[in-house]
Amino acid sequence: MSVTVMSVGDLVVDEPDPASFFAPAAGTLRRGDVVIGHVEVPHSTTTAQVSTDVPAPPADPAALVAVAEAGFHIVTLAGNHVYDAGDEGVADTIKYAQEAGLATAGAGLTLDEARRPAVVERDGLRVGVLSYNCVGPRESWATSRKPGCAHVKVLTHYELDHASPGGPPAVYTFADPAHLERMADDVAALAERADIVLVSLHKGVGHTPAVLAMYERPVARAAIDAGAHAVFAHHAHIMRGIEVYRDRPIYHGLGNFVTVTHALTPAGGDGDSAERAAWARRRIELYGFAPDSAMPFYPFHPESRNTAIAVCRFDREGLVSAGFVPCWIDDAGRPVPLGDGEEGRRVAGYIERITRQAGLDTAFAWDGDEVMVRRG
């Protein structure tokens, strides 16, 4: 008896005909017993907008039906945009996801609700998923009396360690110990009542190839130390490396999956969002790229079209195998699974390369149409 868990990165389903974007991958996803994705933006009919960051307008609630029909069972919600449409946006996203048949984790009308895991049962094995946002903004965080997401507060310290005032500092990041302990308590509690414990982390440096910030490995490892069998991360909108720690996989960033929206692409004219236009300029300054003008619905780094579906198999003894299916986001914004061919090996090679650049020694090996990972 075994259970196949699949997980992908960010889902932003904010274009017409949402089912079409999942069509190439749906056959692969439906082979998973438990399939997890991260819903990045609110799904609501509200017009409220409370974001203090780049605005992410709510997507059509009907798009969540397409997510479920593509093969997903659980969606994680702890992310930096979950509160962009305020209290109503949080409540609507949970309601519409659950009405579509999706279990949710990571957001709620209170912090206790946001910390509550999603639990499903397959062949007598209980699979639990917890979800945390590590990147802010603070407005997105739930409290005992405010809707929002479960979170791990990460502190940033800048140190000028050379004799050039105004020069570039060294950057140190680390999790607030109290928040890390709270996450570990949640994981340990879930391990008491679930056979398989999975943790979703919204973390990382956006739109930047390969780099892992200082806090990322310790937070992910803390989840494993507390009892998690695997960690799946997202937020950076670009793939990150894969680590195997204590013989359990940490996918430091699964990048984009279906992420289609015009919300980050300036439309021009007097009616356009000033914040959106400013973000388009700042994106070049911060990250050194401009999106492909031929894909205005895909406003992300060119390398982000390399992506993957994480695949982990478990039995009653724990993890049996871990790996991924390489995918490429095509010109229509659709993630396309790739087998052991030229294109599949190119994407797998990219993932192995950024893993090495991040200082991780994971070993990669093809097994059929999947790439397996193990400690190097």
Rank of each mutant, 00 (worst) to 15 (best):
T93K: 00
V219S: 01
V13R: 01
R115D: 08
T261A: 03
A163S: 11
G271T: 11
F22E: 09
V50L: 15
D84K: 03
P147N: 09
R217D: 04
G268Y: 11
R248A: 07
P58D: 11
L180W: 03
P335L: 10
P24K: 07
P209K: 07
D176A: 13
M214W: 12
P24W: 11
V311C: 03
R248T: 08
S144N: 12
A308V: 11
T265N: 12
A59Y: 01
W141A: 06
A310C: 14
E88H: 13
L125A: 12
S20Q: 15
L201C: 11
I309N: 00
E275K: 11
T45R: 15
V231G: 04
V75S: 05
T173G: 14
V54P: 05
A100F: 04
P137T: 08
T110C: 05
P326Q: 06
P168V: 10
D330A: 14
Y132D: 06
P57G: 00
V39F: 03
G108Q: 10
P42E: 03
G101K: 12
V152C: 08
R356I: 06
P296Q: 13
L155H: 14
L125P: 04
A70W: 00
L11I: 11
D84V: 06
R334N: 08
V197M: 04
T265R: 09
E15I: 12
L102D: 05
A220Q: 03
I74K: 07
A68L: 02
F257C: 06
G253F: 05
V205C: 01
R31I: 04
E243A: 00
V50A: 13
R316F: 05
M295L: 15
P326V: 08
G106I: 02
L180F: 01
A310T: 10
A48H: 10
I351V: 12
T104E: 11
F21G: 00
Y172P: 01
C312W: 03
T52A: 09
V90Y: 01
R282K: 09
T45P: 04
K203I: 14
Y245N: 02
E352T: 04
E121T: 15
V211H: 08
